[in-house]
């Protein structure tokens, strides 16, 4: 499991898609890229036109990569069906044939009060979403070849929503205390907590708020017991460097006041950035970010250069 999260707008989708691509290029397939809810763009970045599909679909220009977007409704249906299957040890469900089970799912989920309840019942939707991810990671397999996924990359929601997913699932464990939902939620959490099975990437840009959210997110996820995060810095720009022949401030202004101003802003941004990054590294007691991905100012969605950074710096 690879979980990619961070503040909104720092490039989670780009990095998730790049990570999937990097894994594929290393021949580590089959790989499933899952976009969880949100307005993610990772499926689009992989060139999938039909990027709202729940079922895994093959990415045409990448061998061994499939992608799917988890939507709450089908996820809940699958989750419920899964719970029913788990409940078969229970005498009430033992006699059910699978077609009867399907009908039961329909009956229950289509009931107005039940569906309204499911809609608002705390914790059930997150558990269904993570339940689907968990199911893919443990039992899912590539269509046709039927080989189990070797990697599942999750383009997770941003900070608050991501924490909510894990916290609510954890809370289900605590609130229910027993029963089928409890068992399922516990299994999800133990997979997500296993450092050998799950890798967590927290993405940030070299700016104040995204870095702060990265810190909060790391603390929040650690408090739920998730493995230590790898911090990834995105959109890194080259540091400014003044040469000996540089014009004085006044000369620069005389040359072009607008661009003189931009030059000064760049210098300030650069020094501020290194101060922020230094402080971040110190706070988290790390030598450097797990990866630094350069800013491309790309007008087109070419993720190849980012995939190559991911391959070099993020994958062992």
């Amino acid at each position: 499991m690879h979980i990619v999260t961070g503040k909104g707008g720092v490039g989670k989708s780009t990095v998730s898609a790049s990570l999937a691509r990097a894994l594929a290029e290393r021949g580590e397939g089959p790989i499933l890229l899952i976009e969880v809810q949100g307005s993610g763009r990772s499926l689009e970045l992989l060139g999938l036109e039909d990027h709202f599909r729940y079922e895994a679909q093959a990415v045409s220009n990448l061998d061994n990569v499939w992608a799917s977007r988890i939507l709450p409704n089908p996820a809940f249906r699958q989750y419920f069906s899964l719970l029913l299957a788990m409940g078969q040890q229970d005498s009430t469900f033992a006699q059910l044939t699978s077609s009867l089970r399907e009908r039961l799912v329909d009956t229950v989920l289509e009931n107005k009060v039940v569906s309204a309840f499911v809609d608002v019942c705390p914790g059930l939707e997150p558990a269904a979403l993570l339940g689907k991810v968990h199911w893919e990671a443990t039992e899912g397999m590539a269509p046709e070849t039927k080989r189990p996924w070797r990697h599942v990359v999750m383009d997770a929601p941003s900070t608050g929503h991501c924490l909510m997913l894990f916290r609510s699932t954890q809370a289900l464990v605590e609130v229910f205390g027993s029963g089928i939902v409890f068992k399922q939620a516990s299994e999800i959490m133990s997979l997500m907590r296993d450092p050998l099975a799950t890798r967590l990437y927290i993405l940030s840009t070299p700016e104040e708020l995204p870095l702060k959210e990265a810190s909060d997110l790391s603390a929040g996820l650690a408090s739920i017991g998730l493995p230590p995060a790898r911090f990834v810095l995105n959109r890194v720009r080259p540091p400014t460097q003044q040469s000996n022949g540089a014009l004085s401030a006044a000369e620069l202004d005389a040359w072009n006041p607008e661009w003189a101003r931009e030059a000064r802003l760049e210098i300030e941004r650069s020094s501020e950035e290194s101060a922020l990054l230094g402080e971040f590294l110190k706070t988290h007691a790390i030598k450097d970010f797990s990866a630094r991905i350069p800013e491309l100012f790309s007008l087109h969605d070419d993720i190849a250069p980012i995939a190559s950074v991911c391959s070099k710096e993020l994958l062992p």
Binding site: P239, A260, E262, A263
Partner: peptide, 27 residues
């Protein structure tokens, strides 16, 4: 950024370096 690109980028390169200038112009 300003609407017009600078006509001559040398002063910029001297002030912030080649790499940063290229990044800025690309932006």
């Amino acid at each position: 950024l300003p609407e017009e690109a600078p006509s001559n980028t040398e002063p910029l390169t001297a002030a912030i370096g080649e790499a940063a200038t290229q990044a800025l112009l690309k932006q």
